[in-house]
């Protein structure tokens, strides 16, 4: 283990920590604490739960293809990641300022502010055409769009799409989770398109023995390729139930098991998701016209002297 692991952890209260959990989780917290999902106490209880883990931003994901696939896709889904009660449950009440709200500002992610809940959509598709249509359909209504698949073709198609925020290359079957495979071409595409790859701890929790070791080996192989091409890598708990929730320290430790460095794991749970959300906000607000071209304010435009100063030339 690296020598910098030896340093005791300091107080990290000022950091922002992101997590990506099922939209059904707040309802489960309500059921556990016995509060009404439409009540103010609900927000307090759910906030208390996530604050216990030091999270500042929580992305609550729903299945993007639920209506099209119906019950077929939920077969064997024991972790409750369906978000069935989302329309009337705690989920909708928690979605206070999102990207679509002009007051949303990721720069405000500082200690002391309330936990921000964001709307996420997770897409699972059988083929590329279905994936493209689902991305097109879901992108305008969500803050954070992910594609989950262990299929190489789907992973590549998702990485190529500029509308995808993150690809989760591990399938969602709790009994038999399988990791996908990527090659240098997919990694290069993802790096160019700034599509992140995300790994969630939930599929690793309830499998043991050979299956888990294989899952680790496949995920570690992917991480190695992603590191080679500097593809942003995210770490989430991906919790579908209460007891699948894990904190940022645990996620960082999980990332290090997969072969990420300490700096990479810290960025994976704290800064990278914020950067992705900020980029999406710029696109949404019309500041970014196209990739690489955006409208800047006078304050943002740097003078020649400032550029030289930043480059260390003077």
């Amino acid at each position: 283990m690296a020598a910098n692991d030896s340093a005791p952890k300091t107080d990290t209260a000022s950091k922002t920590y992101f997590d990506y959990v099922s939209a059904a989780l707040p309802d489960e917290i309500c059921a556990k604490t016995g509060c009404d999902p439409k009540d103010n106490a609900m927000t307090e209880n759910v906030n208390r739960f996530f604050k216990k883990f030091n999270f500042t931003d929580v992305i609550l994901f729903q299945k993007g293809n639920q209506n099209q696939k119906g019950n077929q896709n939920q077969k064997g889904n024991q972790s409750g990641k369906t978000g069935q009660n989302d329309q009337n449950g705690a989920f909708q009440n928690l979605l206070n300022p999102t990207l679509f709200n002009p007051n949303f500002d990721p720069a405000l992610s500082e200690n002391g502010r309330p936990i921000r809940y964001l709307k996420g959509t997770e897409i699972e598709a059988d083929n590329e055409n279905e994936l493209y249509s689902l991305i097109k359909k879901e992108r305008p209504n969500t803050d954070f769009l992910t594609v989950r698949s262990a299929d190489e073709k789907i992973i590549r198609a998702a990485a190529e799409s500029p509308d995808t925020d993150a690809v989760i290359p591990i399938s969602n079957n709790p009994q038999k989770p399988a990791a996908g495979r990527i090659n240098h071409i997919v990694a290069k595409i993802a790096a160019d398109k700034k599509t992140a790859f995300a790994f969630d701890i939930a599929p690793f929790l309830f499998v043991k023995g050979y299956r888990r070791s294989k899952l680790f080996a496949e995920a570690a192989e992917m991480v190695q390729i992603l590191q080679e091409y500097n593809v942003p890598t995210l770490l989430f708990s991906g919790a579908g139930t209460l007891f699948e929730q894990r904190g940022p320290y645990e996620l960082e430790a999980f990332g290090q098991l997969l072969g990420l460095t300490q700096e990479e794991t810290t960025a994976a749970v704290s800064t990278l998701p914020g950067e992705i959300l900020k980029r999406r906000q710029k696109q949404k607000s019309g500041v970014q016209i196209m990739a690489g071209a955006e409208i800047m304010t006078d304050a943002e435009i740097m003078t020649d002297a400032e550029i030289l100063n930043e480059n260390g030339d003077i």
Binding site: M1, D5, S6, F204, E250, L251, A253, F254, Q256
Partner: peptide
């Protein structure tokens, strides 16, 4: 430390 925290996480 990270391995031990990972064990606790699992």
């Amino acid at each position: 430390v990270s391995e031990t925290i990972a064990v606790l996480a699992f």
